[in-house]
């Protein structure tokens, strides 16, 4: 199913990777939705089971109940009788709740664009940065990595290793250095070396830590000071295994740095990342990319239509 998330044709190598990821994810809860609608008639139980499946996929009770009730209303209003028609209604409502997302692709953004990668601890920021760097380079953009996680032990080394692997220069200071200073230097370095995009790896922070969220705002301010013309994009990495706390996370980061989009990481497990629905439904933040594995190529642009359609295959 993940293959459908690619807008372009995947290469044979990508196809192979995605295929193996699919093998594992197909058993997930959302994949069972279409089974529900293969029954002869739609009963009260069908709707209850649909709600359970959505909750099981971390869609969350509020959004799950809303989705089911919207689909039911449509079925009743349009006097839809067959399960096939009902399924179409559910599908339509799911697409609607997932929202429309018409952002400019990162690879087409103007030179000088600064991408801030933010998120809670362990959500996969550094790995996502590496994947994104490789993704952008493959599409002809030059990138520079800024090691602004100066807090976690060996985070700088981790980014350096990735930098070598994806052949992207890394700007780093010492551990415990001021992350703002790192970003400033990185932006200046990218300008003088004529590199297109700066990818900033920030320290993981729990969204409830007031001071750390302030620090993030400061990093953003410094970035725009270093290059006032720069377009700044904030991307939140969200672990696909996260439950309802994802909404609180997205809300705090949204308040702090105006998150533009989400990278849903670790979608290669059995978790289905149903929070995508509730985060968009409640906060309007769309998913931009999904992470599907540990290799540097395991990143794909998110296509919400394909995502929903794939769930019904």
């Amino acid at each position: 199913m993940l293959r459908n998330l690619f807008r372009r044709e995947p290469t044979p190598q990508e196809r192979e990777q995605i295929e193996s990821a699919v093998q594992k994810t197909r058993q997930g809860a959302l994949g069972h939705i279409s089974d529900l609608f293969r029954q002869q008639v739609i009963t009260e139980e069908t709707w209850d089971e649909l709600e359970d499946l959505l909750i099981q996929a971390d869609v969350g009770p509020t959004t799950a109940i809303e989705l089911v009730s919207r689909a039911r209303k449509e079925v009743e209003k349009e006097e839809l009788k067959t399960p096939v028609e009902a399924e179409t209604a559910v599908r339509r409502q799911m697409v609607e709740i997932l929202g429309r997302d018409e952002h400019e692709p990162l690879e087409e953004m103007p030179a000088g664009t600064i991408i801030l990668m933010v998120g809670v601890n362990g959500s996969g920021k550094t790995t996502s940065i590496a994947k994104l760097a490789s993704y952008l380079e493959q599409r002809g953009r030059s990138v520079l990595l800024a090691a602004a996680d100066t807090f976690r032990a060996a985070a700088i080394d981790q980014l350096r290793v990735w930098g070598e692997r994806v052949k992207a220069p890394v700007v780093a200071h010492q551990q415990e250095a001021d992350p703002g200073a790192v970003v400033f230097d990185a932006v200046k370095a990218a300008q003088s070396r004529g590199l297109d995009l700066v990818l900033v790896d920030t320290a993981g922070r729990l969204h409830t830590k007031f001071n750390l969220m302030e620090e993030l705002q400061k990093i953003k301010r410094v970035a725009s000071k270093a290059n006032p013309e720069a377009h700044i994009v904030s991307l939140l990495t969200l672990d696909a295994t996260t439950g309802q706390n994802a909404i609180l996370q997205a809300k705090s980061f949204l308040q702090s740095v105006e998150v533009d989009g989400i990278i849903l990481s670790k979608l290669d497990g059995t978790a289905k990342g149903g929070v995508a629905f509730s985060v968009y439904n409640e906060l309007g933040v769309p998913i931009w990319y999904i992470g599907t594995g540990e290799k540097v190529q395991d990143l794909a642009p998110f296509d919400h239509l394909a995502f929903v359609n794939a769930l019904f295959e």
């Binding site: 909750i55 971390d58 809670v120 672990d239 295994t241 996260t242 309802q244 929070v275």
Partner: peptide, 12 residues
């Protein structure tokens, strides 16, 4: 295990 884990915690 991460306290923020969702429904999938059980499977894992």
């Amino acid at each position: 295990a991460d306290a923020m884990t969702g429904q999938d915690a059980v499977q894992a």
